[in-house]
């Protein structure tokens, strides 16, 4: 695999030189492989949003570098807009950024800024709308007539329409009802599977991350607490809990079973995984 994004010893300090000075990101390094689905998890205030705003150059590092395809994104500050088209960032509660008269025009804002016109523009908009599950009849409506979940899809489409190489999502399901969450995540999963775009998903729901990510980055107080595959991370479930973070529900069940003396491996994060373990135990004539 090859690396698409690389973060090197990134530090960001807010309000330097005032009584409110504080580091929101401290000495963070990691790499993102092309096509991977990376989950970033951490408490509110652990620095997730600050970190990802560096990836498309909205924030400038206090120290450290961000490399996109091997090139420092701040090498040419005048061209930072190009980075923003390549690393699409969807903010938390993105529906509050909608402003156009119609859904179509709002989705077209990004690709237009990119310089797309005519058929290319139309194609980009319609394709993005389709990817997030918006129907054609929605496109001519005012975005303000739509439901909360639909507004969010419009905002997501507005970034997808720029056809970024990396898609960064900041808590895309925050504030949606369970059905809306699952729906949107299914869209994002399909998008990842079909387009092969690299995705970074920020969330504070362990279950959401566990179900979707190939690799997980756990942030705590502005630093990386752990990183690895879901199995590697959830094998350290006790540490996560001690740090005040959650583990997926099924990992919790496995940990409880183990504490009662069953020889289960708690590094499991899907129902199927635990089921397989328990069946194996049963067949092996264990105490189950």
């Amino acid at each position: 695999m090859n690396t698409i994004l690389q973060v090197e010893r990134l530090t960001h300090t807010y309000s330097v030189g005032t009584p409110f000075q504080r580091s929101a990101v401290e000495d963070i390094s990691f790499a993102v492989e092309r096509g991977e689905f990376l989950g970033i998890i951490g408490h509110t205030g652990s620095g997730k949003s600050t970190l990802i705003q560096h990836l498309n150059g909205l924030l400038r590092p206090t120290a450290g570098r961000v490399l996109l395809e091997g090139k420092d994104i701040w090498a040419e500050p005048k061209k930072i807009r190009n980075v923003r088209f390549q690393v699409g960032l969807v903010f938390q509660y993105p529906e509050y950024q909608l402003f156009e008269e119609t859904v179509y025009k709002d989705i077209a804002f990004g690709p237009k800024n990119q310089g797309k016109t005519g058929d290319a523009l139309d194609h980009a908009v319609r394709e993005a709308a389709r990817l997030v599950g918006l129907r054609d009849e929605h496109l001519d409506k005012s975005p303000f007539e739509l439901s909360g979940g639909q507004k969010r899809r419009v905002a997501l489409a507005g970034v997808l329409a720029m056809e970024p190489k990396v898609l960064v999502l900041d808590e895309p399901t925050a504030g949606l009802d369970p059905a809306g969450r699952e729906n949107l995540m299914a869209n994002i999963r399909d998008f990842h599977r079909n387009q092969g775009t690299t995705i970074l998903l920020v969330s504070h729901s362990m279950d959401e991350i566990a179900r979707n990510a190939n690799r997980i980055l756990v942030l705590k107080s502005a630093r990386i607490l752990m990183s690895g595959t879901p199995a590697e991370v959830f094998a350290r479930g006790e540490e996560l809990l001690a740090a005040g973070l959650d583990v997926p529900q099924i990992t919790r069940v496995a940990m409880a079973l183990r504490d009662r003396g069953l020889p289960v491996d708690p590094a499991v994060y899907t129902v199927e995984g635990l089921e397989a373990q328990l069946l194996a135990l049963k067949r092996g004539g264990g105490p189950c």
């Binding site: 705003q53 498309n56 909205l58 807009r81 923003r84 088209f85 699409g88 960032l89 969807v90 903010f91 993105p94 509050y96 950024q97 909608l98 402003f99 804002f109 990004g110 800024n113 990119q114 507005g158 970034v159 720029m162």
Partner: peptide, 30 residues
């Protein structure tokens, strides 16, 4: 809101006065 629109390539710095004024719409409406 400014950050969100910048993430979609909005440009608040360049252009003449008219273009700059028009660039404010995506901020002011939300």
């Amino acid at each position: 809101i400014m950050s969100a629109q910048k993430a979609r390539g909005a440009d608040f710095e360049s252009g003449n006065l008219m273009e700059k004024a028009r660039a404010l719409v995506p901020i002011l409406v939300p």
